[in-house]
C-alpha cells in the first residue's frame, strides 16, 4: 500500500509524455507548480487544469492512477479546507449559526486551495508516473552539471538518489517484517504516552539500521563486481536528447503560463 506511493510507481507505457526529455519534464513541473500558486483567478486556474489535462491525455496513464495519487494527502487537503472555511473571516457571511460564520470569500479561498493542492500533487506524480527513477536522476544530474565547476559531486548525488529510490520498497518491506517479528515477541507499539511509544520504536530501528548496513556492504561488492569505478569513462544507455517533442511541449506550456502571468499582472494593476 504505502510502497505504491510517490516512488517506484512508474507506469510502463510508451507515450508522448514518456518520451519527453526528463530535464524538460522536471523544468515543466517546477514551472507548473509556480503557475499554480500564481493563479488566483478561475480563468488562470482553468488554464493550469488544461495544462494538466493535456499532460494526462498525452501520457496514456490511466486517469484513476493520477487521481489516486491524491489519496495519501487527502486528509491534509480536507483538514486545511475545514480550517480555511472556519477561520477565513473576510467577505460577507453567507452562513452563520452558533459561533460559526462562513463567508463567501472563505468558500472561494477554500476551494481555490483544495484545487491548487490537488493539482500540485497530480502534476508531480504525473512526472514520476511517466519517468523512470534512473531517467529522473539522470535529468537532475544533467541539470546540476554546472555545479561540477565548484567540485560538487553531481554524479555521486544522482547515483545516491537512484539507489535510495531503488531501496525504498525493500526497506519498507523489511520494516513490516521487523514490526511483525517484534509484535510476535510481544512488543507493544500502540499503548503508552509519546515517550513510551518512541521507546518502543527502538527495537524496530536498530535491526533496520543493522540490516541496511549489511545490505550496503553487499551492494558495494555487487557494484565493484560489475566494474563500477565512478563517473570516469562511464557511458549512458539513454542519452538525454531534446527533440521536437520537447519543443512542442515547452511551447504549449509556456504559452499557457504566459497567459497565467498576464492574468495575474492584470489583476494586480487593473488600470492597464
Amino acid at each position: 500500500m504505502l510502497r505504491d506511493v510517490a516512488f517506484g510507481q512508474y507506469y510502463p507505457v510508451d507515450s508522448y509524455v514518456h518520451r519527453l526529455d526528463p530535464r524538460v519534464k522536471l523544468i515543466l513541473v517546477v514551472l507548473f507548480i509556480a503557475a499554480i500558486f500564481l493563479s488566483s483567478s478561475w480563468a488562470a486556474l482553468g488554464a493550469c487544469a488544461l495544462l494538466l489535462l493535456f499532460g494526462v491525455a498525452f501520457s496514456r496513464v490511466a486517469v484513476s492512477k493520477v487521481l489516486k495519487s491524491i489519496k495519501p494527502i487527502l486528509f491534509l487537503i480536507i483538514f486545511s479546507a475545514v480550517l480555511n472555511l472556519l477561520f477565513y473571516r473576510e467577505g460577507t457571511p453567507v452562513l452563520s449559526f452558533w459561533i460559526i460564520q462562513i463567508t463567501d470569500r472563505a468558500i472561494r479561498f477554500t476551494v481555490l486551495m483544495a484545487v491548487r493542492l490537488s493539482m500540485l500533487i497530480m502534476g508531480s506524480s504525473l512526472l514520476t508516473l511517466t519517468t523512470t527513477p534512473v531517467a529522473l536522476t539522470d535529468g537532475i544530474e544533467s541539470l546540476l552539471k554546472p555545479l561540477k565547476a565548484v567540485r560538487f559531486p553531481v554524479h555521486e548525488l544522482a547515483l545516491i538518489m537512484s539507489i535510495a529510490l531503488r531501496f525504498i520498497p525493500t526497506l519498507m518491506e523489511e520494516t513490516d517484517r521487523i514490526i511483525n517479528a517484534q509484535k510476535a515477541r510481544g512488543a507493544d507499539f500502540e499503548s503508552g504516552n509519546i515517550v513510551a511509544r518512541a521507546k518502543a520504536l527502538l527495537p524496530i530501528l536498530i535491526p533496520l539500521l543493522i540490516s541496511a548496513f549489511r545490505r550496503a556492504n553487499e551492494l558495494s561488492d555487487a557494484m565493484d563486481s560489475r566494474c563500477y569505478t565512478g563517473s570516469k569513462g562511464r557511458t549512458k544507455m539513454k542519452k538525454l536528447k531534446v527533440t521536437y517533442r520537447d519543443h512542442i511541449a515547452l511551447f504549449v506550456s509556456l504559452n499557457i503560463m504566459a497567459f497565467i502571468i498576464i492574468d495575474k499582472v492584470m489583476a494586480l494593476f487593473p488600470a492597464i
Binding site: 517506484g8 512508474y10 523512470t132 527513477p133 534512473v134 537512484s162 539507489i163 529510490l165 531503488r166 525493500t170 545490505r215 553487499e218 551492494l219 555487487a222 557494484m223 560489475r226 566494474c227 563500477y228 569505478t229 569513462g233 562511464r234 557511458t235 549512458k236 544507455m237
Partner: peptide, 21 residues
C-alpha cells in the same frame, strides 16, 4: 535484493555495460 542498483529492469542490466564504457 542487494545486487540491483536501479528500480527498472533495463536500467539495472545497463549498469554494468555503462561502467565499462
Amino acid at each position: 535484493d542487494n545486487q540491483m542498483i536501479a528500480t527498472i529492469v533495463e536500467d539495472d542490466i545497463a549498469f554494468g555495460p555503462e561502467n565499462i564504457g
